[in-house]
């Protein structure tokens, strides 16, 4: 067996494949062995319960899907009391995902979750409205200063590994990435879904109840891949690639571009066996290429000849 274990800050993963937040739950335990994953990332929780967006929340588009779930969740207390006990049988690192209205709320969530032994790391979902000076100006992850504030607050509140989840909808992702790194993030998750919409021409109405949503799936992959490659040489902390990874070939592409680990989301809906097949595929690929470890794969894209063109 090829060693495909990777390290994300303090976190050791037996393989680089994680579930993407909001696309995985213990329900999938009937269809695949959850403990074979590198890590389990849970659905984003907020301090207070959130009802989520009206239907339809899903729209299929060419080689992708849009979602506008609206962070529906039952809130922090329900999570701690009801969800955490159900994680008893999970032997792999469990990563909680959090979202808040401001730095203080993020910190409160992190402080509470950081005390739970079962939670190995916290993923900070920064795709939340950026409330500054009483007005909403884009998302936190679109503002380097706000990103730094939130990550710093979370860093002070919890000692476990922190992953900053970025939005791809920015003019220069490296500015946001550097802000997150400076504030103490242990890894970057590149990236969340891309804002998008679709219209039903028969009714003339948007195909999502929330009008707009986030694009995921194969259509998004090349966009995110380029961001990972761009960040790899500018950032010191590990990058986790996430965007339209459907099979091991996609995962290897991301790793060649510099991702230390990857997350699988939409692919699981299409093929619940996808995460497990990707893990096996990465191992097989590395064996065929005679790679001793992931160090020989991560960031090893051969761009030399292209530079000379």
């Amino acid at each position: 067996m090829v060693d495909i274990s990777v390290k994300i800050g303090k976190l050791k993963l037996k393989n680089p494949v994680m579930s993407a937040s909001g696309t995985f739950g213990l329900e999938y335990g009937e269809l695949l062995d959850i403990n074979s994953l590198g890590a389990l990332v849970l659905k984003t929780i907020t301090y207070e319960p959130r009802q989520g967006n009206p239907a339809p929340r899903i729209a299929e588009v060419s080689s992708g899907m849009l979602n506008s779930i609206g962070l529906e969740n039952k809130g922090l207390e329900d999570f701690v009391k009801k969800k955490v006990p159900k994680l008893k049988g999970i032997k792999i690192p469990v990563i909680a995902s959090i979202a808040g209205n401001n730095a203080k709320e993020y910190a409160a969530l992190a402080a509470r979750l950081g005390r739970i032994a079962k939670i190995a790391a916290i993923e900070v979902n920064l795709s939340c409205p950026n409330v500054r000076h009483g007005t909403r100006e884009g998302l936190i992850a679109q503002d380097a200063e706000a990103t730094q504030d939130v990550i710093s607050a979370v860093r002070k509140a919890a000692s476990c590994a922190l992953i900053a989840k970025l939005t791809p909808n920015v003019s220069d992702i490296s500015k946001i990435a550097l802000a997150a790194q400076k504030a103490g993030a242990d890894a970057l998750l590149v990236a969340n879904t891309f804002p998008a919409m679709a219209v039903d021409i028969e009714t003339g109405k948007p195909r999502l109840g929330n009008i707009t949503g986030g694009l995921s799936g194969p259509a998004l992959k090349p966009v995110i891949l380029k961001m990972v490659w761009e960040l790899y040489n500018k950032i010191e902390i590990p990058i986790i690639g996430c965007g339209g990874i459907m099979d091991y070939k996609d995962a290897v592409e991301f790793m060649l571009c510099g991702a230390s680990a990857i997350q699988v989301g939409t692919a699981t809906f299409v093929n619940p066996a996808a995460p497990v097949e990707i893990i096996k595929g990465i191992g097989k690929y590395m064996k065929e290429k005679k790679m001793a470890g992931p160090g020989q794969l991560i960031g090893k894209i051969k761009v030399g000849s292209l530079w000379r063109l």
Binding site: F24, G25, E27, A55, I58, E60, I69, E72, T266, F269
Partner: peptide
């Protein structure tokens, strides 16, 4: 009936 993604209760995509 509703548009669905996962079909197993994970994605919360088919609310009523």
């Amino acid at each position: 009936e509703e548009r669905m993604a996962c079909g197993v209760g994970v994605c919360l995509g088919c609310p009523v």
